[in-house]
Amino acid sequence: MPDRHSPVSGQSGQHVPSGPTEPAVPGPGTPVRRLRPAHLLFEPQASEPEPERFFDLEAIEDPSELLRRATELTLAFRAAAERATDFQAIAAAQLADTRRFDALSPAEIADQADWTPDYAARMVEYGQTLLKQQAVGEH
């Protein structure tokens, strides 16, 4: 067994700190020791999949409470969907902006978003309206 205070050489032949007399944090010129990951000796057990749950609605037994909570979630999802649609429209308007050197046509936007070209054109118009409203609100 090597002496605690004697220098130990690593695989590269460089000095590797071995005891408490060495600084804990390597300084300039101190070689950095790289730790290797340990080899797995076994395969981790696959845990059984948890039953699918939807905001714990399955656990609510009172029909009035279930209706209240489900309605609350429905309204929240509708609001989130409307907000996401607004962001889609803004992005479509920005992509179609002719001041951009890489402006896209409504057909190209439709391809990217999996829309019809007519819907993409309407989203571009809606996005332009939202951008104008934002600009007015900033002033």
Rank of each mutant, 00 (worst) to 15 (best):
K132C: 11
S18A: 15
D111R: 07
Q134K: 05
P20W: 06
V136Y: 14
I109A: 00
F77K: 06
V32H: 05
L40Q: 15
P20A: 14
I60W: 10
E65I: 06
F55N: 13
A59L: 09
V32Y: 06
P26M: 07
A70N: 11
D118G: 00
L131R: 07
M1K: 13
S105F: 05
F54H: 15
H139A: 10
V8Q: 14
D114P: 00
Q45A: 15
L75A: 10
E50V: 12
E82H: 11
E125M: 03
T74H: 15
V136S: 13
F42N: 14
P2V: 14
H139P: 05
E61Y: 11
R33Y: 11
P7Y: 01
R122V: 03
A96G: 02
A107Y: 11
R68G: 10
E52C: 09
F87R: 10
A24T: 07
Q88Y: 00
L67P: 08
A84C: 08
P28K: 06
R34I: 15
E82N: 07
Q112M: 07
A24G: 10
S18Q: 13
R68V: 11
F87G: 07
A81H: 08
L67E: 15
P51Y: 05
S105L: 04
D97L: 03
E50P: 11
F101M: 05
A91C: 07
F55W: 11
F77P: 01
S18I: 07
A91N: 02
Q134R: 10
I90W: 04
E138L: 01
G19D: 13
E58C: 02
L73M: 14
M1W: 08
A46M: 06
A110W: 03
G127W: 00
L57H: 11
P23W: 03
T71R: 01
E22K: 11
Q94Y: 04
A92M: 00
A121E: 08
P26T: 01
S64T: 13
P117S: 03
Q134L: 08
T21Q: 15
E58S: 09
D118A: 07
R4C: 09
R53P: 09
E138S: 02
P117K: 07
K132N: 13
P23L: 09
F77G: 03
D62R: 13
E72G: 13
L67F: 14
R122N: 05
R69N: 08
A84E: 12
G137V: 04
Y119F: 02
P49Y: 04
T85C: 05
Y126I: 04
L104V: 02
R53T: 15
R99T: 06
V124E: 02
P17E: 01
A120V: 05
R53Q: 14
S64P: 01
P26S: 07
Q134F: 10
P26R: 07
R122T: 06
R99Q: 02
I90R: 02
A113G: 05
P17Y: 00
F77S: 08
E82S: 06
P31D: 10
A113D: 05
E138P: 03
T30G: 10
A93N: 00
P7A: 09
F101V: 10
Q112A: 00
T98F: 07
D114V: 03
P17H: 00
V124H: 00
D114F: 06
V8N: 11
V16C: 09
D3R: 12
L104D: 02
D111E: 12
E22M: 13
G13Y: 01
P17N: 03
